[in-house]
Design a protein around this nucleic acid. Sequence first.
RNA 1: GCUCUCUUAGCUCAAUUGGAUAGAGCAACGGCCUUCUAAGCCGUAGGUUGUGGGUUCGAGUCCCGCAGGGAGUACCA
Length: 635
Amino acid sequence: MQVAVIIFFNLQITITTDYSLTNYFSSCFIIFAAQKPGKMNIEFLIKSSVAAALKNLYGVDLKEESIQTQHTRKDFEGDITVVVFPFTRFSKRSPEQTAGDLGEYLILNVPDISKYNVLKGFLNLVISNSHWVSELNEAFEDPFYGTTKATKDSKLAMVEYSSPNTNKPLHLGHIRNNLLGYSISEILKANGNNVVKTNIVNDRGIHICKSMFAWMYEGKNETPENSGKKGDHLVGEYYVKFDRMYKAEVAALMGKGLTKEVAEQKAPSIIGAREMLRKWEQDDHEIRNLWETMNRWVYAGFDETYKKLGVDFDKIYYESETYKVGRDEVLRGLDEGIFEKQDDGSVWANLENEGLDRKILLRSDGTSVYMTQDIGTAKLRYEDYPIDKMVYVVGNEQNYHFQVLAILLDKLGYKWGKDLYHFSYGMVELPQGKMKSREGTVVDADDLIDEMVNVARKTSEELGKLDEYDDNEKEEIYRMIALGALKYFILKVDPKKTMMFNPEESIDFNGNTGPFIQYTYARIQSVLRKAKEQGIKWGNAQREVELREKEVELLKKIVVFPEVVTESGKLFSPALIANYCYELVKAYNQFYHDITILGETDEVIRNFRLVMTETTGKVIQLGFSLLGIECPERM
RNA sequence: GCUCUCUUAGCUCAAUUGGAUAGAGCAACGGCCUUCUAAGCCGUAGGUUGUGGGUUCGAGUCCCGCAGGGAGUACCA
């Protein structure tokens, strides 16, 4: 039986006036996976034994959580290290002596500890091989090793990601968002949560009106069908055309002596687009039809890109369906005196008491802004689902927006308002700096994926390992490798950090890359295939098998996988999974290089190596599935 | 201006959240395929963790100052 207890820490109650980011958005979705009864995790066992030792030796009561352990560094002998500095105040002895006391106690009381040594204030414990082997057997037997299945009663997390505007195609920035959103969802699932993946499509607003305006004036009835262009790209072209038109008009007006500010308001194209937005909100037939048509083109394009990326959604919200709910909420807030109306008719929230500025909620012409619809969307979602945790995967440029959103929802009386979690990730930069559509430096998602596939094809053909496959199978493998490279490259870096994407260097398949890890997986499958061909059968390893150093290292890497899954769930970090997979694979390749598997004549040892090989493959696949990366059987 | 944030090897990133001698990959140089997939393995070289102080048994990590990047502060989304 497997039990998972999930506890939500609500960190905001203590402070009433401080609305700083840390209070709202520090990771407050903390998961505790309970130990399986009878199968005590070794670190926990050591912690409780240390606690008992401290009580016994020095008469102090310390909780297990306050005892620090870590994996012993490679340069020292041992597997698990207890940090004893904090205990010297109780022992009134030197760190070395204290560590020695504890070591003696542990070796007498914990059978799985075979040796210990002391260095300064560090007590290094050597765990017996038989313990590691029995953990390996558990991993070997469990097809979902390291993960916890959700039940009907598990907590429900809703994860919003992607959230495109419908006026232009997806680019590199969206790719990071989509990969993070998908991966975070998988990681939360693996930690025993129910997850609803959702997408809010920003299908209405001034941006799409700009594309519509340009299409009406310059479009000549161009459609995806008659032009052969992908729908989202076509609409994006008109957005760019609008921008050019607008810039030219502003320049012309400034030439006539208007100031920049006035010219920007008086340009005919922007007035036209605004008029379209106003008509749209009034349900004008002609405008609505054009809007529907152009959005339909865009969705067809997006679907293609999502499919290529391998991401999906359980529930899609459209801003056009939620903004009214938001507007009603704002008007209710106005009635209740939470918000205020300015003379020109615009509605504002005054957040000066919270240390922030005033924020507009409705324009003077009555139309909604981004914030308005986000209020409505949030309300609808909580009506539609019994959400325990709402996660927004949105770039850190919107930190302020989400800080304000949480406060507004709180002011509107929603108790969950302050529990919204903004999973704030860093921007993607190019060697030339930020991506700018006007300067043509945007890396288009479709182009990038196609380019990655081309490189994968070329590399694979040079290596010539897939020659006996037919073309369809080959293309499928090229696709897996290309996406493996792209996804791993992006997910291996800490989501919070700004990352650099160099299109040339990112298309590398050697070293710390997705294809290297996929390659190791393929290699493992090859060994297992050969074993089967030779009629070899393998099963649970014998506990008393003799182990070589590379084997122990690999073994220890395999069995920390569950810990990594838990940690990545707590920290919302696919990067932890990615970096773990790399370390695991590195350990496997060293083992593979130095030690024969099928060539081993001692059947007990050969069996152990096969169990370890198969389990490594499984863990790679499980880990990569949390990143949304597939593993080919051959490459 | 104000708020937030970042700065680790030539480049791209790690560092078990305050622990031991700061690690990988790429790039450079040298070695290993008659043996389970060389998209691999091994080695050499590369660092005053931007800078100055502070906190303590211990700081890349926490606090304060300075320098330099980035983001936000819109009737944009």
